[in-house]
Amino acid sequence: MSILVGKDTKLLVQGITGGAGSFHAKQMIEYGTNVVGGVTPTRGGEKFEGKVPVFDTVSQAVKATGANASVIFVPPPGAADAILEAFDAGVELVICITEGIPVVDMLGVRRVLEAAQAEARASGAKIPRLVGPNCPGVITPGECKIGIMPGHIHKKGNIGVVSRSGTLTYEAVGQLTALGIGQSTCVGIGGDPVNGMDFVDVLELFQADPDTHGVIMIGEIGGGAEERGAEFIRTKMTKPVAGFIAGTTAPPGKRMGHAGAIISGGKGTAAAKIAALEAAGAKVAPTPSDMASTLKSMMS
């Protein structure tokens, strides 16, 4: 098993005819991901790479293919629209890679998503989920790669990875694989201030997944997602969690690459997040080179 994505995932690619969309659609197909269709408005009826059908709308694509996941490569001006279109068409898992979506747009998306999730919880239906935006995606090694991560560094196994940063996720995965430790699923939740799945949501799934035996959680400065994750670890998590927080040396008030990576009003510092994780029983790697070895030391 694994979380979020696997052999049963039937994937749509929104923005499949664009530069990033087409490049990564090919890479995902090559990895073995079941890409059942693409969506580009006005390009319906075409075939991508001679075999993947392209649709004008997500709704048409879902009806024709039975897709249950969608990955979004639509540029920022249309990205929030693309996310909402996917949920409206009944897609359960939407993964948005796009970087640079205005935060006001994401507030609207969150509002719709939260209402849909509350409805699903009340009726016992499958809960719709958004991963990202501004994230590398989700991979279950050997089964399904959705996003832009380099597939070859991963190895099938039992460690879950959840991270706000793309390249730091690769760093952690590279370290794990070098130690011969495989991964169950790796989830990039993205570097934006308002996003979909949070650390808590992903940790909850890892805790419930019998094939995940331990977790690496990678946070960074800004916001309170790491602190909420730490609270979940303290109260609900029985599996070992190793952490790393990037930005110990980041100056306050400066946006460090990610829109969400900013210390404002003295809040969101690395020191506060590290303290919260340690108080919750997680072990925080002293340097980014020690993420995998720190988790290994906790696994017996």
Binding site: S165, T249, G257, H258, P288
Partner: peptide, 12 residues
């Protein structure tokens, strides 16, 4: 390359 890795590089 990457904001997280860039911050982590400063840190290390």
């Amino acid at each position: 390359n990457g904001a997280g890795l860039a911050m982590a590089t400063m840190d290390i």
